[in-house]
Nucleic acid binder design. Structure first.
Lengths: 117, 117
DNA sequence: TCGTGGTTACAAAAAGGTGCGTAATTTACT
DNA sequence: AGTAAATTACGCACCTTTTTGTAACCACGA
């Protein structure tokens, strides 16, 4: 994995929230504190490996906070940080944008736009 | 290549704007009309193949419009659609969010914040 | 021959899945 | 009482799948 640190903040956010899982995990975490096994139940198709990797990434990005409690069975809780909470409406805005532009996209095939000079 | 069409709009947008290139391409396209070769110059590290694939994806998503002009050396122009233009401020907001939360992130492991004697 | 905007086939790289091991304690069974 | 199994949140090794890069090819006309 290349830690290509770009000068562009948008590129950097994208490195974190890109992919299938981040938005889903944020979605479930905004419902409140979740444990590892909760998140696996919320999203049955993620593997435990992926879940740990993604959570670690979100943690490093300051979106998610991980709290480990002593004792056995080991208990770990995940929450959105204040920064993570502020991210939520931005993702929602993307979702709304997608819905709002659905009309232009709904009918699959390309319309014959022949722009001739 | 599973076209796992989800019920969640955020998941769907993410399938389109995720990855290294979409945000960059949108960034350059918001500067105005670009040709294929312009975009390759703007972003020298994208491969020929990736550029065509990503442009196609953005086109299918209704973010980018492709205009083909007949003639000599074939000329093709790319522009943001109105929907694509509306997406720009949302991406910018993500960038601002990233910058605003920069403080909470560890900036560089080289910083010896707490030295234990 | 070069440059344009593509496509295709093959190879390399990255991402992701599977299953095993780990901890200390409780419960379940013999 | 002794043993076994389950529990939680992972790490690690191995293997498969997906993505991306590389290079070659195509068409056309200057």
């Amino acid at each position: 994995m290349k830690d290509l640190v770009s000068r562009c903040p948008i590129e950097e956010v994208m490195q974190v929230i890109s992919g299938r899982w981040p938005s889903l995990l944020i979605y479930y975490l905004k419902q409140g504190t979740k444990r590892f096994s909760d998140l696996r139940r919320d999203n049955p198709t993620i593997s435990h490996k992926m879940l740990t990797l993604e959570l670690r990434k979100l943690e490093d990005a300051g979106i998610v906070e991980r709290s480990e409690f002593e004792g056995y069975p080991l208990r770990v809780e995940y929450d959105l940080t204040p920064a993570g909470l502020k991210l939520v409406p931005l993702l929602d805005a993307l979702g709304s944008w997608w819905d709002a532009t659905a009309a232009g996209r709904s009918q699959g095939s390309t319309l014959p736009v022949e722009v001739t000079k």
